[in-house]
Design a protein around this nucleic acid. Sequence first.
DNA 1: GCTTACGATCTGCCTCCGCGTACGGTAAGT
DNA 2: ACTTACCGTACGCGGAGGCAGATCGTAAGC
Lengths: 139, 139
Amino acid sequence: MPDRPDLAAMMVRLSRALVAAERPVLEAHGVSMWGYIVLSALAEEPMRTQAALARAIGADKTRIIADLDDLQERGLIEREPDPADRRVRLLRLTAAGRELHAAVRGAIRAEEDRLMSDLPAADRRLFLQILQALDPGAP
Amino acid sequence: MPDRPDLAAMMVRLSRALVAAERPVLEAHGVSMWGYIVLSALAEEPMRTQAALARAIGADKTRIIADLDDLQERGLIEREPDPADRRVRLLRLTAAGRELHAAVRGAIRAEEDRLMSDLPAADRRLFLQILQALDPGAP
DNA sequence: GCTTACGATCTGCCTCCGCGTACGGTAAGT
DNA sequence: ACTTACCGTACGCGGAGGCAGATCGTAAGC
């Protein structure tokens, strides 16, 4: 293939399209992008400090405070001081948080499938597999 | 595959990694990201108006003016008023611009190949093919 | 000729984000 | 006890980018 667009250019365009497609889904569930990212991270595993969470999701540690406040007020996450070290706040999902995350995640999966609906199933599977292999944030 | 990261999340992470990897390449050639995007667009086809160029690359029409100024000053693009309609500026690469674009593009291709070096050749080919199929900016 | 529409440019406003700083609370080593 | 280091939080700065309006030159319809 002598002529193709730049890889980065394609990826950035595709990312934008994906994020744009997911915005309405998130809005429908009343979660911000960062909020959903936080829910996803905590759904995978609870965190012992906010700094660790920020590092895990690639955000500034001061940035996510407002989002954590919001999520906590809405009863989606718990943020209680560690009795063993009262500097740190133990972060985990509540039942409501887990439920909301599952719902949003399902809606997003559906949207993703819609965007990839032209692809043969085998191609789609391989595509996802390669993406995971290249993903710098996975392993 | 019951459990995988969100597609958008993976794509955004990968995009960031790609852009970060290409930044040094661009700097080595003295071009900004937008500058390179402009060169790429004009390498594909000359443009009759700056507004059309901005639309083509998904940028604000006022945003790219400074970049065009810079590229023009450095003799990489030509921006002459259309004799038939002196409102519009005909945009095209100069020989130097075409040459620089080819050089940067080559370096970026090499960098991309390096990042995908773990992938079997067949997977890589299919991956690129699928990306082009999904790319919203292609057709 | 006059009005309307359009291209390029400049300016200002707004948001988002990364980064650094500062401060109070707390732990741990000595 | 004292020092050092770390956590969470607040604040401000600066860059990047999207968006709107104003201006100027120009074109086209009437």
